[in-house]
Design a protein around this nucleic acid. Structure first.
Lengths: 133, 133
DNA sequence: CTAAACCTTGCCACCGATGTCAACGCCACC
DNA sequence: GGTGGCGTTGACATCGGTGGCAAGGTTTAG
């Protein structure tokens, strides 16, 4: 399989595949004319990478999962390093969510103040557009 | 007030103040020697900008708030454009939070699968480290 | 022979707020 | 008059994944 076919099948671009390879994540042999030649299994690898990127992992963070697949596991998450990475990301997400929740509170307060104080004393409508919390 | 003093009082850098000015947010007169000279009121403006940036607004998004202050309001949020910006940001935050919540679910599922299937049938401990949901 | 459709490497652009450096001007103080 | 500390403008770097282009090689079809 050449790079164009892999890109299309994986739903990405050749540029991106070369970038992954430059980062040591995707592997290719070279044919006599210098073209990259991919095993069928690389399709799975690329799919994993893209799934992980989509949920906020950095490219480097996908390495343990890729290595886990290459080690013969059918699930990229079963290896210890993968579990660590998942836990790290989970903690990150939790931190971001709690921070955003605080931000949300501030925004709502500002809206309530701004609108409530503008020219009336309100009728109790939810003027912030935020819904009940 | 010269730029160094304003920077220190506002808790930022001269580089940043010049950047805000280049974006039409902060104003300065020029003294005979070309130095920027700031009104006392610009301290408040800079403070507002930094507060808004801190809760995720882009620099451009702070413009209505700054203009609102310049219009003589003591609260930067009371003007219609400010309210619009606050609502937009609130909607963004909500969207991000709900997306992150989905991501969180995926992470937790992956962790549960990976660890649960590894070598035992568990004792019910929360192995994902996520706490009860 | 040529055009089209692949492939190769390498480099610049992006986004956005800020850091940082260069090269220079102005002022105050000793 | 020199030095240090302010100010000025301008330009490049950062981060990260990707887009996009240029200049070139290869292979196949016409």
């Amino acid at each position: 399989m050449l790079i164009g076919e892999l890109a299309e099948r994986a739903g990405t671009s050749t540029r991106t595949l070369r970038y992954y390879e430059a980062n040591g994540l995707v592997r290719a042999r070279r044919s006599a004319n210098g073209y990259r030649v991919y095993d069928e299994s690389e399709l799975r690898v690329v799919g994993e990478i893209r799934a992980l990127l989509a949920i906020g992992f950095g490219l480097q963070d996908t390495r343990p999962f890729v290595e886990c697949l290459r080690a013969g596991n059918e699930c990229s998450a079963v290896c210890p390093d993968s579990v660590l990475a998942l836990r790290r990301r989970l903690a990150e997400v939790d931190a971001i969510v709690s921070q955003l929740t605080q931000v949300r509170e501030q925004l709502k307060t500002q809206l309530d103040n701004a609108i409530g104080r503008r020219h009336d004393h309100g009728d109790g409508r939810d003027v912030s557009g935020a819904g009940a919390q």
